[in-house]
C-alpha cells in the first residue's frame, strides 16, 4: 500500500532522533501564546461585571451645568462614601427610562435631607438632548455625562435604564435592570440609611 522512494526509510531509522527544529518550536509557541492571550482576554472581559456584595468601581464625573452635587463641578464616587448612592444609568433616547424619571425625582426629594445621593449618568447621549430631557421632567438631582462611556463599561451595563444601589461603605447592594418603581426605592433606601 505504501509507495516508497528508495532514498528515505532505511537511513532515517538508523540515525539518532534529531532535535526538534527551532522554527517548529517557535510556531507552536506562537499559537499557544495567541490562544493564551485570547483566553485571558475573554475571561477578563466577562469577569469584570460588579455583582451584589462587591465593591462598586470608583469613577470620576464632571457634572452637567446646574446639576452638580455638593456644589462642586467634579466629584468621585469615593467622595460620596458614608452616604447611600443610587446610581442610575439613562439616556434621552431611551424610551423605557421615561417610566422611572418622575419616580426617581420624587424619591430624591423625599430622602434628600437624609443624605442619600442620587446620581444620574447619561450613557452615550448627546448633551443638548440630555439637558432637554432633564428640563422636560424638571429633575433636580445630580447628573453627569458618561464621558468616553468609561463608567458604563466599568459597570458593564447591559442597557438602559439600569440602576445600582450602593451602600455607605461603597458596596453594591442591588442591581436593577430596567426601570425602578416606588416600592423598590422605598424598600432599599431606608434599609441602606438605617445601617
Amino acid at each position: 500500500m505504501t509507495d516508497t522512494i528508495p532514498t528515505t526509510t532505511t537511513p532515517v531509522e538508523a540515525a539518532p532522533r534529531r532535535p526538534i527544529r527551532w522554527s517548529m518550536i517557535a510556531l507552536w509557541l506562537a499559537v499557544i501564546a495567541i490562544l493564551a492571550v485570547l483566553a485571558w482576554g475573554l475571561l477578563n472581559a466577562t469577569a469584570g461585571r460588579p455583582e451584589v456584595g462587591q465593591a462598586a468601581p470608583d469613577f470620576t464625573v464632571e457634572f452637567f451645568n446646574g446639576y452638580e452635587w455638593d456644589a462642586r463641578p467634579v466629584a468621585d464616587l469615593s467622595d460620596m462614601r458614608g452616604r447611600p448612592v443610587v446610581l442610575n444609568f439613562w439616556a434621552s433616547w431611551c424610551v423605557e427610562c421615561r417610566y422611572e424619571t418622575d419616580v426617581l425625582e420624587q424619591t430624591w426629594l423625599k430622602y434628600r435631607d437624609d443624605g442619600v445621593v442620587f446620581l444620574g449618568v447619561a450613557y452615550a447621549d448627546v448633551e443638548p438632548n440630555s439637558i432637554a430631557y432633564m428640563k422636560e421632567f424638571g429633575v433636580t438631582f445630580p447628573h453627569a455625562p458618561d464621558l468616553g462611556t468609561d463608567i458604563s463599561q466599568d459597570y458593564e451595563i447591559t442597557g438602559v435604564p439600569e440602576t445600582f444601589f450602593i451602600d455607605k461603605d461603597g458596596v453594591i447592594r442591588h442591581v436593577q435592570i430596567g426601570a425602578v418603581d416606588e416600592q423598590l426605592l422605598d424598600t432599599i433606601i431606608p434599609q441602606m440609611l438605617a445601617e
Binding site: 492571550v37 485570547l38 485571558w40 482576554g41 477578563n44 472581559a45 468616553g148 468609561d150 463599561q153 466599568d154
Partner: peptide, 12 residues
C-alpha cells in the same frame, strides 16, 4: 480579535 485585545490592555 482586536476588540478583545484592546479591552484587555486598555479597558476600552
Amino acid at each position: 480579535y482586536y476588540p478583545i485585545l484592546s479591552e484587555l490592555f486598555t479597558g476600552e
